[in-house]
Write a protein that binds this DNA or RNA. Structure first.
Lengths: 179, 179
DNA sequence: CTGTTCATGTAAGAAGTTACATGATTTG
DNA sequence: CAAATCATGTAACTTCTTACATGAACAG
């Protein structure tokens, strides 16, 4: 396959904003990109090593004593690759995997259907609450350190989850299935 | 890990509505579940064999001459497992992977940002058009043959993609980034 | 002094995609 | 008769998750 995956660019994007360790990247991703692109340690650490060996990133600092810590910095080559990716027109993968929608699709009795609607509501209410927390937190982050698109993307997330919530609300209130 | 995955239940759900071949399942999935749970031949054929060997499904008919075709039917054991799954409370996985959101997250210049907004709009406009086509098609399918939740799920999809479209529209019209 | 957070990494496996190989039947 | 569609299946690969192993530093 090609040299860099979307997950590589996610890491590169984080390094572009500021030098980071694998641990940093994971924590940032867990309250930002995870809502539309999740990553795990099992990807991050090997990928950082790989990005370094390919010249897209380099080790900025490495702790020799005490607690282990390797901080990576993006290289000019990495920055160029990131820019190219950002501007490239491609397939622009969009994928949803939703177990509750899958269940709803196959459900025939009204009672289970209503129960699933309830569960969908609860799920997205929880996500909305989390996103509102992120929003609050974001306002406290110094302007310069903020990843540029975070505000836009956050608003998109709020809209998306609100829309699903509203739909599930309607579904729950609907009279017992006709037609 | 456990014996049946969500993808197994998707197949079982299809067989519950009506006996099908692997090819059938793929074509149905491609204009229904694919919007929230995509599957490929590489999963379907081995999984049908597996479901049969575990007693959740059985071969209803098999062409011995001419064009190959194996039609599967759900067994009582399969039906029971499906029902249990539909009613089980679990983690209810919800996952989004969106390359354009990922790009937007890292974009700093207004021009690229606007371009990505445009691409998001185009993408979801296309999905909406497809979903409206599915909606039309669904009305022509005989009532009894319809998978029960398809209408509900379809409306959910329309809402979701409309919400993203609207958000992208706002994003495109916004004055060049302040704050 | 104990639990939490910081910190790195690997190994095994699950899940999914893509490409390939093969061939029959139908439609224009 | 050629192209599209019907039809099954496998192999190689990518991607991602989970669990494990290890240990330092800090907060109460």
């Amino acid at each position: 396959m090609s040299e860099l995956s979307n997950t590589s660019y996610l890491i590169l994007g984080m390094l572009d904003a500021h030098p980071h360790s694998g641990y940093d990247i994971k924590s940032i991703a867990d309250h930002s990109t995870r809502f539309f692109w999740a990553i795990s340690y099992g990807q991050i650490y090997p990928e950082l090593t790989r990005l370094e060996s390919l010249g897209y990133a380099e080790v900025e600092s490495e702790s020799t004593a005490g607690r282990a810590r390797r901080v990576f910095r993006i290289t000019p080559k990495g920055r160029a690759a990131l820019k190219r990716w950002l501007e490239a027109e491609g397939e622009d993968a969009f994928e949803v995997r939703d177990e509750l929608l899958l269940k709803l699709f196959f459900v025939s009795d009204a009672k289970t259907r209503r129960l699933i609607a309830k569960r969908i509501k609860a799920r997205h209410q929880a996500v909305l609450a989390t996103l509102r927390g992120v929003e609050k937190h974001l306002k406290e982050v110094p302007h310069a350190r903020r990843v540029k698109g975070s505000k836009d993307v956050l608003r998109g997330g709020l809209r998306l989850h609100q829309a699903i919530y509203d739909w599930a609300q309607d579904l729950e209130n609907e009279p017992t299935h006709t037609s």
